[in-house]
Each structure stands twice: as structure tokens, then as C-alpha cells.
């Protein structure tokens, strides 16, 4: 079987790329895609830990279900925001979102 630190390194790399992308991008949708990348990285880490323990625990699978649900909810929110903001010609640049109410 693969050494565990291989899987962990892949997970950390994916997480780091996600964070770097969120920090350097201005587009709202791209930032949300970066959050999705971070969720995938956390899933890879969870699966890695789950695969390498001697006694399998159900809490790893339940955590995986929770991460799937959070990712699905985020995608639903992305689509809803994207369609609405596109229709009202709202700028996707997050640096221009300076007010909570207008």
C-alpha cells in the first residue's frame, strides 16, 4: 500500500492551491470554486486516515457524508447567486462589494 504521507501531501497541496486561489482571485464564482477545492482536499485527507487505521471507524464515513452535503449546498448557493447576479448585472468583483445593504 502507498505510504500515508503521499496521500497527506496530495491533500495538503490541493488545500494550499485552493487557499492561494481564494486569496488571489477577485471573481466571486472562482473564489467559491476554490472553497470546493479545499473541501475535496479535506475529503482526500479523511479517506487517507480512514484507509490507514487498523480498526475502521464509522465516524470517518459520517464526516465524509457531511462534507459531501456541505459541498452540494455550496454548489446550490453558487448557482442561485450566479443566475441572480447575472440577471441584475451585478459585478462579480468581490473588491467592489463594500456594503451590506444598498
Amino acid at each position: 500500500m502507498l505510504p500515508f504521507y503521499y496521500v497527506l501531501a496530495a491533500s495538503v497541496a490541493l488545500f494550499a492551491i485552493g487557499i492561494a486561489g481564494i486569496a488571489t482571485n477577485k471573481h466571486f464564482i472562482v473564489i467559491m470554486l476554490g472553497v470546493e477545492l479545499m473541501l475535496v482536499a479535506s475529503m482526500v485527507a479523511v479517506i487517507g486516515y480512514f484507509s490507514y487505521v487498523s480498526v475502521p471507524s464509522p465516524s470517518g464515513i459520517v464526516l465524509l457524508f457531511a462534507i459531501w452535503a456541505i459541498a452540494a449546498v455550496e454548489v446550490i448557493a453558487i448557482v442561485a447567486f450566479y443566475v441572480y447576479m447575472k440577471y441584475i448585472d451585478f459585478d462579480f468583483d468581490v473588491t467592489k462589494l463594500s456594503k451590506l445593504k444598498w
Binding site: 482526500v44 479517506i47 454548489v75 446550490i76 448557482v79
Partner: peptide, 26 residues
């Protein structure tokens, strides 16, 4: 990656949920 770790069912669920559901919807 899940497949290489031996978790075939979780790999299948990942494809169903993320690729078949979320990516298609997006």
C-alpha cells in the same frame, strides 16, 4: 485516489455525487 487507496465504494459515491450531480448542475 480513493480507488488507489482501496475504497471502491467511496470512489463510486464521489463520482455519483460530485461529478454526476454537482459538476453537471454547475
Amino acid at each position: 485516489v480513493f480507488l488507489l487507496l482501496g475504497q471502491t465504494m467511496l470512489a463510486m459515491l464521489q463520482l455519483f455525487v460530485f461529478v454526476g450531480g454537482l459538476s453537471t448542475y454547475l
